[in-house]
Amino acid sequence: MHPAVSLLLFTTLSGAGFGLIAWTGLGFGPTGTWFAWLDAFVAGLLVTAGLSASAMHLRRPDRAWRAFSQWRSSWLSREAVLAAATSAVFGAYALIWIFTGARLLPLGIIAALLSAITVYATSMIYTQLRTVPRWATPLTPAVFLAFAAAGGALVLSVLEGGRSSPIAAIALVALVLAWIVKVAWWQRAMKTTRASAGASPEQATGLGNIGAVSRFELPHTGSNYLLREMVFQVARRRARAVTRLAVLFGALVPAVLLLIFLSFAPSPALPVLALVSHFAGLLCERWLFFAEAEHAVGAYYGAR
């Protein structure tokens, strides 16, 4: 699948934003109203940036409002509705906090739950696609949720400005968990091919009972939408390099920085560096998520 920048930003930024909302809703972070301002602003920024990025993916963003209509069947629609609902509930929570100083835990819990469901809905946009066998696993929502949790916690610990609080530790734990889930996801992905999802060239054409099937000529000598969008080909060497970067910046560097921060150097710079690094790593992870995913239609276009 084509790793569109809009989608990389959408999933990473909105994931972190909803993670932040969830941790905040659960009562983490300082309670001062100044912090309420900051926290709400950053959460809003991340979520809005993520959603705007996703709107960049639309060819007719003027019609984006229609995406609220099909919540009964469409995960993308649900995601939109849930994102709006989460934002509304969290907005209410933040306003009350800002103006009264009170953090209403029940409302916060609702916001946190909604956040989680929203991230789940986002992940289900991909998970539901039988056409992309790598994505079609419950591990995908787990990965999205875990990274949202880790990212949110990291952001929160940055916002806390180096104060020692459980959130940095939570961030570390969430990060480790997220990568454990991701490694499991990769393990499965390596075993998952188009053929294992019933989309080999033989099954795609139904000609397998005659013999092995390979492409002779494509319908067109140039490119087309399908090829660009769904038959993105990534060189194995390049994929391996990006994987290393993802693990290095997404996991190792932030984990070490967090460990240092938690153990002996509560410098506010460390969580910031950890977050920046993690975010860079996560972009690599998402790039791979898309770039390495083979779509069933590739079977029709398949190189021999």
Binding site: R63, L76, I125, R130, M230, H295, A296, Y300
Partner: peptide, 26 residues
């Protein structure tokens, strides 16, 4: 007239039966 050009339906189709029109964005 209702399509916002998100492309998700094309992703969902295993047969490559949907193509985004690049001029119209639908």
């Amino acid at each position: 007239s209702m399509c916002m050009g998100c492309g998700l339906c094309a992703w969902a189709c295993p047969y490559g039966a949907r193509e985004m029109d690049m001029a119209e964005g639908v």
